[in-house]
Design a protein around this nucleic acid. Structure first.
Lengths: 200, 200, 200, 200
DNA sequence: AATGAATGAGGCTTCATTCAT
DNA sequence: GATGAATGAAGCCTCATTCAT
């Protein structure tokens, strides 16, 4: 009996995850989730208080993972030299970020791209800003050496955005763990070369 | 002098453009468009057959611009050497793409990011694939020279995607024409260096 | 010693009584009763056939008490003189009615004020009519002596209603037995003086 | 066309008024109102924003009438002698209150008895308290002369309640203006004699 | 051209009740 | 007895669209 309960709950969660991923929060309907899970709409409410709770029960754990990861890794360092900076990027993205992509690809995409109407709807934007600030701060001495105008700042915004988008693309087209690792590596190489190129 | 009739049509179009941009196609309501245009909801139907037609009348012209631009510039060339390849990228993005950003930023964003529920909902994806193919084909000889596995192919996908996302960011944060030009230049420099870096 | 079975039944009854009192029959939910009784909703149905039966099992006994009381006391007498009439009122209300207020205040309020949607929804109204008829019949000779028009009849309706409302207020603000007794006494004095006053 | 609109609006209002009166706010359904008004449920929303607005559009005007009436008549006087006190009661209830009963009987009943779930759900209770305070204050010197315990205070509560209930009964069984006037007169006579009787 | 009026479909949610275990 | 699971009906409300004027 506990088994059956858990089975149906899983069916609801899977259906919901798929629909949130495909249509986003607002455009996902409880009716369609129920249909996909092959139960009545009202039965969903025996498992989840409402649409919000269903969404957050799926997404909050992954959100917290990301949040902790970022707190631990970005908030603690000082100004870095160019080499340390690039090394840190490699470390952060190659491993903890890679883990999330491997384990929670769908939820990651939902948080970043399909969460309009939820409390996470601006999370991606904020995250981009965080990454951007980090980049700008870390290589500020390089920038000063060349020409420190606002254009650089905006290109940094785009690069931060691109980095995140690249990781999301990995999540969206997930193949296997090795595939993720080697692509992250390439991606980082790409960005490092690109950023370096801006100052030469 | 503009007829009253034309004035109202413009009001509807402006209101619709704003809402499609802010909420996306599905979540935009005819009621809200009407409210913004200060006319009755039903009157919209005297100018546009329905919500779909209203959307397409706004977006199709820009879609065609983009389509033609791509047909003319990507579809006609042969394998290029590295230098010609980068030069072509510069030319394509610096000018015709820049024009679209300057003239149709809003419609561009709508097509790419807010068209779920319309026939354009997969356009961005397809465009990324087109760019990706072009990149892959153009530097296929370089890739062969090194290690031509699927990983490279996917990093090319990400780069194509990033290029588009970068341009969209310019559209989203549009300041002025000069700002666009100088950022496109930086962006291309960034990508060229990044791509080059992958093969060294 | 009370069996577990009986204990749970009591818990359900207490929870139901509280909710019927607070929200009325229709707005009381089985779910909330179950929550209050700390059992599952479905388990209520092992004790009571359905919501109606639960309600009636609580209310019928008190309804019958009231019914019998009224049958015994109102239905059996002849025309009375003014003094006998007032004496009878005093007797009826001071004791048997007082008992019900002291012992079944909650059920009394539920029957009279919170039974919409049940077979008792018009009971208060009917009771008022009964009291009214009794009053009218009993002092009909007095009324004839003065001016026997319909207005008098309606003021009698209001007085009957007020008498009942007054008793309900005692039930609603129940303090202790003595408090009930002394207030009933005052209330009757008030009504007797008021009625007498109408004929002078 | 304006005519038709107004006709339907009236039909909705009449249907709503009847149902609010019969079932109270919460138990009245938009569906039933629509059925009674012979239109579709959704069409109601072309006339009233939602169920709350429909209710308040019907009830607020009468609420304001009552509120103003009470502010003007109760809040302005000093301690009165017995005669002035009774005269004031007569004046207040005979005329302004009578007007409301004659003109807005249904809305009055809805406010007082059927407004659970709305912002008026405690209005009757507060009104009773206001009347009670007024009574207590005004005849406080009489009370002191006899025995000023809490019982008297509670009997005053009941009397205030009865007064209001009596007026509501007039509203509920409204016949015609003359009928209201003569019954109010009797009612007041009744209460004055009853109150006086408590102190002798 | 312009509007108000009208509607059916669909969206989220609560409810009383039944069923299997 | 006790519970979780399941459901259909009903409740409020929004939406795109059509129709009559």
């Amino acid at each position: 009996m506990q088994l059956k309960k858990e089975k149906i709950k899983k069916r609801i969660e899977n259906a919901a995850r798929e629909d949130f991923l495909e249509y986003g929060f607002t455009k996902t309907s409880m009716r369609n989730i129920a249909k996909k899970a092959k139960i009545s709409t009202s039965n969903i409410y025996n498992y989840f208080k409402n649409k919000d709770y269903l969404f957050y029960s799926l997404i909050d754990p992954v959100y917290n993972k990301i949040k902790n990861l970022l707190l631990n890794l970005f908030d603690t360092e000082e100004n870095l030299g160019e080499n340390e900076f690039f090394k840190q990027i490699s470390d952060v993205f190659a491993h903890p970020v890679g883990e999330i992509i491997k384990e929670n690809a769908k939820e990651l995409i939902i948080i970043m791209d399909r969460s309009e109407g939820t409390k996470y709807e601006n999370f991606k934007e904020k995250l981009v800003e965080t990454i951007e600030s980090h980049f700008t701060d870390s290589i500020v001495h390089e920038m000063k050496a060349i020409d420190n105008d606002l254009n650089h700042k905006f290109v940094m915004h785009i690069i931060a955005n691109n980095l995140l988008e690249g990781l999301l693309e990995l999540a969206k087209h997930y193949k296997n763990e090795k595939w993720v690792d080697s692509n992250i590596e390439l991606l980082i190489k790409y960005h490092i070369k690109g950023i370096s190129g801006l100052f030469n």
